[in-house]
Computed example of a mutant assay.
Amino acid sequence: MNQSYDLIVVGGGVLGTFHAYHAVNAGLKVALIEKDMRPQGATVRNFGQVVPSGMNTKWQNFGRESLAIYKEIQEDFDITVRQEGSIYLASNEEEVQLLEELKSINETNGYTSKMLTKNQCLAKYASLREDYVKAGLFFPEEVKVEPRTMINKLQQYLQEKGLDLYMGETVMGCDALRSGVQLSTSKNRIFSTVKAIICNGSEFKYLYPNLFEESDLEVSKLQMMQTKVQPNYKLPSSILTGLSIRRYEAFSECPSYRSIKTKEDPQSFEKKWGIHILFKQALDGSIIIGDSHEYAPAGNIEKLGFDLNMDVDSFILKEAKKILNLPTYEIQNRWFGMYSQCKASDIYQRTIDEDIHIITGIGGKGMTGSAGFAKHNIKTIFNLEHA
Rank of each mutant, 00 (worst) to 15 (best):
208 Y>G: 02
153 K>L: 15
360 T>K: 09
121 C>Q: 02
67 L>E: 04
82 R>M: 11
330 E>V: 08
138 F>E: 04
61 N>C: 08
199 C>A: 15
6 D>G: 10
195 K>D: 12
282 A>Q: 14
74 Q>P: 10
40 Q>A: 07
15 L>E: 10
239 I>F: 00
41 G>D: 06
72 E>V: 07
129 R>P: 05
356 I>R: 12
169 E>Y: 08
268 S>W: 01
266 P>E: 11
186 S>T: 15
372 G>E: 08
88 Y>A: 01
47 F>M: 09
378 I>E: 01
214 E>A: 15
290 G>H: 11
268 S>C: 11
269 F>N: 08
165 L>F: 07
149 T>R: 09
248 Y>K: 03
329 Y>C: 08
186 S>C: 11
65 E>S: 13
167 M>W: 04
217 L>E: 04
121 C>N: 05
123 A>N: 09
226 Q>D: 07
32 L>T: 03
88 Y>D: 03
383 N>T: 10
360 T>I: 15
219 V>F: 04
221 K>Y: 01
248 Y>L: 12
375 K>H: 14
78 D>M: 05
234 K>Q: 10
121 C>E: 07
44 V>E: 07
91 S>E: 14
155 Q>D: 10
302 E>G: 04
194 V>G: 09
155 Q>I: 13
135 A>W: 06
265 D>E: 02
368 T>P: 11
46 N>K: 03
283 L>M: 12
227 T>A: 07
62 F>M: 08
301 I>A: 09
240 L>D: 00
387 A>Q: 13
37 M>G: 03
262 T>Q: 14
219 V>L: 10
141 E>L: 13
77 F>G: 03
65 E>Y: 06
263 K>L: 13
286 S>K: 09
45 R>Y: 00
225 M>N: 02
210 N>Q: 13
139 F>L: 11
92 N>W: 01
351 T>Y: 14
310 M>S: 03
236 P>G: 01
19 H>I: 15
165 L>R: 00
253 E>H: 01
237 S>A: 14
273 W>M: 05
211 L>A: 05
162 G>Q: 00
117 T>W: 02
244 S>V: 05
62 F>C: 06
184 S>M: 13
285 G>N: 02
118 K>E: 12
126 A>F: 02
42 A>K: 00
